[in-house]
Design a binder for these strands. Structure first.
Length: 331
RNA sequence: AGGGGAAUAGUUCAAUGGCAGAGCGACGGUCUCCAAAACCGUCAAUGGGGGUUCGAGUCCCUCUUCCCCUG
């Protein structure tokens, strides 16, 4: 019998948080405690050959815990939420079928949402042409006229999307043309969804000052570890600067440096700044997600400590759900 | 010490004597198929004192601070 509060549902643990908060190692420690497997929820770590810039977890750091969705794509392959969701759902099922618990770990809130709340995406692989056309139309008509056009078919979307936001303007109209449904209505429906999982959604949280310092330090370390060489090697292999994967933090800036557009110092400054901005956007995302539980950590806490604290919360919740279940059965 | 120059938002720069603006930043936010992307909003300044003028960031005097040159 399926009902609210996770009864009858399968467990899914999420370890999220801003970049450089220590998610990866906490996820590993937690996985060791409960015999779980980890699915990476990261839009950049799926790419092979992009290791240093994405601060990808190493074999040793995995400590024998199985990780999914790392290194699955070449840097010039298309990747997006829909693809992520499809694969992640497959892996979750596979992990459950082995009797293990899946941990979704990463910083891409949008991707986590798509799995944790099972967003619906239509099949639309083929339709790159329509999007191209709409993008062209947007450029030709200008933001204001395009906005008017959208308003005629989907007033709700037109109201909530800023005319300057080309990506979402185009997407909203594309969605309508493709499905005949308004994206504003679709989104409202999706937002009302409950998780199909017994969901434990944790967000690692750290003092802002401290996190920003960690980001600066990490960028310096990445450069020392050979970020420039990594980007150079990708370019030499023929991966173009305008690939989506090459828009990742650290990659576009170092590519610009290698092309002589800026000094290395400038590139490093920009990477640090933009990574801080990124962390801020991640916070904003998780803040508006009501399912999130914030785990305050300080740099002194070891990954094991944090993992234990998280496990305590899971146990408590889990036993409450169990109680409710037996109570319901007894009635 | 003498001579010259500068002083405007956290920072880099704007502003015929006529409503002090912009970029970067900091802060807040949006997000349901490019999301490490894309986009929006808010904050914040004329170094101190005097004068000229209907009106001074702008002109004059003075103090302070900084830069350059000479010694």
């Amino acid at each position: 019998m399926q009902s609210a509060n996770g009864m009858g549902k399968k467990k899914l643990i999420v370890i999220a948080g801003p970049t450089a908060s220590g998610k990866s190692s906490v996820a590993v420690e937690l996985a060791k405690l409960i015999n779980a497997n980890i699915i990476s929820a990261d839009s950049m770590q799926v790419y092979r050959g992009m290791d240093i810039g994405t601060a990808k977890i190493t074999k040793e750091e995995m400590k024998g815990v199985r990780h999914y969705l790392l290194d699955e794509f070449a840097p010039d392959e298309a990747f997006n939420v829909a693809i992520f969701q499809k694969l992640a759902k497959q892996y979750i099922e596979e992990i459950h079928s082995h009797g293990n618990v899946p941990i979704l770990a990463g910083g891409t809130g949008f991707y986590i949402q798509s799995v944790a709340f099972d967003s619906e995406f239509e099949e639309m692989e083929i339709d790159r042409t329509l999007r191209r056309e709409l993008e062209k139309e947007y450029d030709e008509l200008g933001a204001a006229s395009f906005h008017e056009m959208l308003k005629k078919v989907d007033a709700g979307a037109a109201k909530s999307i800023h005319p300057n936001n080309k990506k979402r303007m185009v997407r909203a109209l594309e969605y309508f043309r493709l499905t005949g449904e308004r994206i504003s209505e679709h989104n409202a429906k999706q937002r009302a969804k409950r998780s199909p999982y017994e969901l434990y959604y944790f967000v690692l949280n750290m003092d802002r000052e401290i996190l920003y310092r960690r980001i600066d330090e990490r960028v310096d370390k990445l450069v020392e570890a050979g970020l420039v060489e990594e980007v150079n090697s990708l370019l030499m292999q023929g991966y173009s600067r305008n690939l989506v994967s090459m828009q990742g933090l650290g990659y576009k800036e170092i590519a610009a440096y290698l092309e002589g557009e800026m000094s290395l110092e400038e590139a490093i400054y920009i990477i640090k700044r933009d990574t801080r901005h990124f962390a801020k956007r991640q916070w904003t995302w998780f803040k508006r997600e009501p399912a999130c539980r914030w785990v305050d950590i300080s740099p002194k806490d070891s990954a094991q400590d944090v993992a234990k604290r998280i496990l305590d919360v899971i146990k408590k919740d889990s036993s409450r759900i169990q109680e409710m279940k037996t109570h319901e059965d007894g009635v």
